[in-house]
C-alpha cells in the first residue's frame, strides 16, 4: 500500500540521515540527540512490521534507559575542550579508498550471489499479539537460556555495585 511505503521511506531516511549527523556533529550532546532520533526511527520501522512489543522495548530500553544515562554523563563532561579539538584527522583519502573498495566488494558479492538476496516479504495479515508470543517463547521454549542470561546480568550488576563501593 502507498501509505506503508511512504512511512517506510520516511523512517528509513530519518534513520540514515540522523546516523550521518550523529557521526559528523562535533558537539557530543548533539550527537547523542541524533542517535536518539536514529533509534526512534528504527523503532518506527519495527512498529510498521507489526512488531509492537519490539517497538516499545526499543524505546524503553535504548531511548528511555541507556541514552538517558549517556546524555546524563555527557552533560557533565567539559564539552568546550572536545568542541575545540579536531574531530577528524587528515586521512580522508585512505578512508575514501577503503570505502570504495568495500563498496565494490559489496557490488561483486551482490552480483555473484544471484537470487540469494530475495528476502521474504513481511506477512500481509495482521500478526497475533506480540507480547504474549514473546512471553511464551521466553518462558517455555527458551526458559533455561533466558534464566542463564538473567543470572549473568545479576552477576554483572552485583559486580558493578561491588566495584563502585569502596567499603562494603
Amino acid at each position: 500500500m502507498m501509505l506503508d511505503s511512504i512511512l517506510f521511506y520516511f523512517f528509513a531516511a530519518l534513520a540514515v540521515g540522523s546516523a550521518i549527523l550523529m557521526v559528523t556533529r562535533r558537539n557530543a550532546v548533539h550527537s547523542a540527540v541524533f542517535l536518539i532520533s536514529t533509534l526512534l526511527a528504527i523503532a518506527g520501522i519495527f512498529l510498521q512490521l507489526q512488531a509492537e512489543f519490539l517497538f516499545v522495548v526499543q524505546i524503553i530500553l535504548y531511548v528511555g534507559g541507556i541514552m538517558v544515562l549517556f546524555v546524563f554523563v555527557i552533560m557533565l563532561v567539559n564539552l568546550d575542550v572536545a568542541v575545540r579539538q579536531m574531530k577528524f584527522n587528515r586521512q580522508s583519502w585512505v578512508a575514501g579508498l577503503l570505502a570504495l573498495v568495500l563498496g565494490g566488494l559489496a557490488v561483486v558479492v551482490y552480483r555473484s550471489g544471484g537470487g540469494a538476496f530475495n528476502l521474504m516479504g513481511a506477512p500481509a495479515t495482521t500478526m497475533p499479539p506480540n507480547a504474549e508470543q514473546v512471553g511464551t517463547v521466553l518462558f517455555q521454549k527458551y526458559f533455561l537460556p533466558f534464566e542463564i542470561a538473567s543470572i549473568l546480568l545479576l552477576v554483572a550488576m552485583i559486580g558493578a555495585v561491588v566495584m563502585a563501593k569502596r567499603k562494603i
Binding site: E52, F53, I60, V63, G65, V68
Partner: peptide, 24 residues
C-alpha cells in the same frame, strides 16, 4: 495497541529529554 500500557510508559519516559536537554 496490544501493548498500550507499555507504549504510554515508553513515551512518557522520553519526556525526560525535554527537561535534561533544556537544563543543559
Amino acid at each position: 495497541l496490544d501493548v498500550g500500557l507499555l507504549f504510554i510508559l515508553a513515551i512518557s519516559s522520553l519526556g525526560i529529554y525535554g527537561i535534561v536537554l533544556g537544563g543543559w
